[in-house]
Every structure is written in C-alpha cells, then in structure tokens.
C-alpha cells in the first residue's frame, strides 16, 4: 500500500519537476482558458443577468477546451524522450503508472484553475470565492484528468493527435461538465450545498467510475 503510493508520487513528482522547469502545460492551459473568457466578454453583452446565465458555461467550456491542449503535451514529452519505454520496463504495475500520470495532470489543471477562476470572477463580475467552488473545481479537475490521461495515452501515437484527443475526450466528459456548470450556476445565484448536492454526487460517481476503470484498463494501452 505504502509502496504503491510512493510509486504514484514519484511519477507525479517527476512530471511536476519538469513542469516547474519549463512551465509548458500550465501556461498553455491557463492562457487558452483566459483567452476564451476574454473573447466572451465582448461576444456576449455581460450585464449582471447575462453574466450569471452564461458565465458558468463559458468558464467550464473554456477549461475543458484548454485542458485538451495541456493533455496533448502530457504523453508527447514521454514519447519524444523515449522515456515511456523506460517507465514500462520499470518493475511497477501499469495502473500505478496511470495514477502517477493522472496525478501530474490533475495538479497542472488545478494550478491553471487557480489563475483562471480569479480572472473569471473579475471579467464576469461574479462572486465565486466560496468553499463550494473549491469542491466543484476539485471534483471536475479529478474527472477531467482521469479521463484525459487515459485518452492522452491512447492518442499519443495517432496521426492528427491534436484533432483526435478532443473528439474522444469532450463527449465522454460531458456529464462531468454538466455537473460543473450546473453547480457553478447555483453558486453564482447565491445558492448553497443543498441545491447542488445531486450534481456533486454525480461528479463524485463519474470520478470514481473513471479512475477505477481507467486504472484497470490502462494495462491494455501500454502493451507491446
């Protein structure tokens, strides 16, 4: 048990150190999401009512699309540096490799959100700094990185990878995005836990289902 956690952390930390050095993924994700948000500030007339209506949807659509650009990089570096073979040769089981990579992606998208959400609050004039938002972000990021890591590993060898990953990833995460948008919608309307409970439960179910299934299924991806 303890060893498994150590392995996951080692892989996650490796990605984290790389990221701290070159800052590829976080800058790409946060930059893309910020662009989406700022385009919408003039694409839609943002009075108070409109901002509450379209804000949550724009925020999560932006994060989902930006997340794809970051996830594209996640395994590209491993393949370019031929380090994926090294990981596969290591005496660790495949599901731990998956969980380690998912941990890295989780941290990247999470940090990007720390930049994007304050910007969202400013651009859309909405009050989102509440505990509920923290939980929504955690659950959504967990699901996005769980599914995203699996599909990124699959599409890394596909021709036209940049096209293939979003086509696979976005339809599958739709229920999670619905949950995030709806709970954020309740939040900006000043409602609390009770109203968003069902959506948060759905997000938890999604996260658990895809973390477990992806960990089990990952052995079929890294198999030669």
């Amino acid at each position: 048990m303890k060893d498994s956690l150590a392995v996951i952390w080692a892989i996650g930390r490796k990605d984290l150190l790389l990221e701290i050095r070159n800052k590829d993924v976080v800058v790409a994700v946060a930059g893309f999401a910020l662009l989406v948000l700022s385009i919408f500030t003039f694409a839609v007339d943002l009075n108070q009512a409109n901002a509450k209506l379209v804000g949550p949807g724009v925020l999560w659509a932006g994060i989902a699309f930006a997340g794809v650009t970051g996830l594209n990089r996640a395994f590209a570096l491993e393949v370019e540096g031929n380090t994926l073979e090294a990981l596969m040769l290591a005496p660790i089981s495949r599901d731990l490799i998956y969980l380690g990579k998912a941990l890295g992606n989780f941290l990247f998208i999470w940090v990007a959100q720390l930049i994007v959400i304050p910007a969202f609050a400013v651009l859309f004039n909405l009050i989102v700094f509440r505990w509920e938002m923290l939980v929504i972000c955690l659950l959504a990021t967990l699901g996005l990185s769980a599914v995203g890591t699996l599909f990124a590993a699959m599409s890394v060898r596909v021709r036209a990878r940049e096209v293939m990953l979003p086509l696979l990833f976005l339809p599958v995460v739709t229920p999670l995005l619905m949950a995030a948008v709806e709970s954020t919608g309740h939040l900006v309307h000043g409602r609390s836990w009770g109203d968003m409970a069902q959506w948060l439960q759905l997000a938890v179910a999604f996260d658990v289902a895809f973390l477990v299934v992806s960990a089990f299924i990952f052995q079929h991806i890294l198999e030669d």
Binding site: M178, L202, F210, H220
Partner: peptide
C-alpha cells in the same frame, strides 16, 4: 494495438452512457 485501443473506447462509451443519461435527465 489499434484493435486494443479501439476496444477500450468501446468499453468506455458503454460505461459512460448510463452516467450521460443520468446527467441529461437531471
């Protein structure tokens, strides 16, 4: 490898469909 990965998408789609229906219903 293509067949394996495609099969994974097939399985993921099957797991996702009840979740999608539940979310869409909500």
């Amino acid at each position: 490898q293509r067949q394996r990965l495609a099969a994974i998408i097939g399985v993921i789609g099957a797991i996702d469909s009840p979740i999608i229906y539940f979310a869409a219903n909500l």
